[in-house]
Amino acid sequence: MQSAVLGAFDHYAYAVVAVVGTFLAVWACDWLLRRSRWAAWCVSWQGVVPPFINILGMMFGLTLAFLANDTWSAHDRAINAVYREADALRTLAALSTPLPEPQRLQLRQAMADYGQTSADEWSWLAQRTQHPDMQRRADALMIRVAAKDVREALGDTVQKLMLDKVSEMRRERDLRVSLSQTHVNPLKWLGMAFLGLLTLLSVAVVHVDKPRAALMSIMLFACGAAPTAAIVLIQGNPFLAPTAVTPEPILSVLPALRPAP
């Protein structure tokens, strides 16, 4: 469990590496251009025209945009999955209303157990793991809906619709789990870091004959690139703070499933 908790926060570690690494690269460039013994030799590089920056800058920007789109798309899919799961649970509750009292109470108890365990699973999803009781709750709900007395009370058509809703809930839950276990792809981010370094170097080369202007230029680039990459990285798990998807849609259904005191 401890290793799972540590692994859950590796997005933050990558974000720290991105920020620290970027500003270390800025320091290295400034040292090379102004204080190293090769500073005079570096001046011989002047002549690179400013539009050259656009080539590498565009490649870097597009790469970062694609990575950000993947991250925020996963966040949106997680939100949609939670709402669809809650809607399926609410529909199931509505369809169970005509059941006789004992069967309705039993079915709604199974639904409440599923919903509560599903909401409790959030702390596990933040650690990229699964609640140990979740599969058992889902199976118990499926078995209860598929029972003979439900078919006799509601008919084949309604029972089939209820089974479809239970299957939909399970699919959306599986989607939540898979999205929580999405890991940072080192190769993608290594490629982005390489393009970022090349862009930073190209900015420095354009201003190589004016070290102070070069420092200001690469600092501005670093201040734009590093925090943006860090923000994208720390949102790698949709169920991890600071922008975690919440189980509130599922929790809002639970009061209707529990009998009044």
Rank of each mutant, 00 (worst) to 15 (best):
A40L: 03
R104N: 15
H207E: 13
S123C: 02
L200M: 15
A13G: 07
E152D: 13
V158I: 15
S3N: 05
Q116M: 08
I55R: 05
A213G: 03
Q103D: 15
T228S: 11
P227K: 06
R35E: 06
A88M: 06
R144K: 06
A8K: 05
M111G: 04
A140S: 10
I250Y: 06
D164K: 09
L187G: 08
Q130R: 14
Q106W: 01
T228L: 11
A119R: 07
I250T: 15
A229F: 03
M111K: 04
V158K: 06
T199I: 00
W124E: 10
G61R: 06
L67W: 00
P51L: 07
L163K: 07
L62P: 09
E121W: 01
L200Y: 03
R151A: 04
L251S: 13
V26C: 09
S180I: 01
Q46W: 01
V203D: 01
V245E: 08
K160E: 15
H183Q: 08
E168Q: 14
Q2S: 12
R173W: 02
V184Q: 00
A28L: 14
L141R: 05
L254G: 05
C223M: 13
A88G: 12
V205P: 10
L161H: 01
R77F: 02
A94Q: 14
V48D: 02
Q46D: 11
A81R: 14
M162Y: 01
V49Q: 14
Y83L: 12
G191T: 12
D209T: 01
V158Q: 13
D30L: 09
Y14K: 08
W31G: 04
A18D: 11
Q181P: 11
D87R: 10
A18C: 00
A15V: 03
D120N: 13
M1T: 13
A225W: 00
L6W: 04
D139H: 02
V232D: 04
V184C: 09
A229H: 01
A39Y: 02
P249Y: 02
A204L: 04
L32A: 08
P238Q: 07
T157Q: 12
R258F: 04
A81I: 14
D70G: 06
L33Q: 11
G115T: 11
A78D: 08
F9E: 08
T228C: 07
A93L: 11
V245C: 09
V158L: 09
V245Y: 07
W31R: 09
M111V: 07
F239I: 07
Q127N: 13
V177H: 08
A110F: 02
S252A: 15
V253I: 14
S73R: 06
S73N: 13
R128E: 03
W122P: 14
W45H: 01
S178H: 11
S252P: 14
L233M: 09
W38F: 06
W124N: 10
H207V: 09
L240K: 06
Q116H: 02
M111N: 05
Y114E: 07
L6Q: 13
T97N: 12
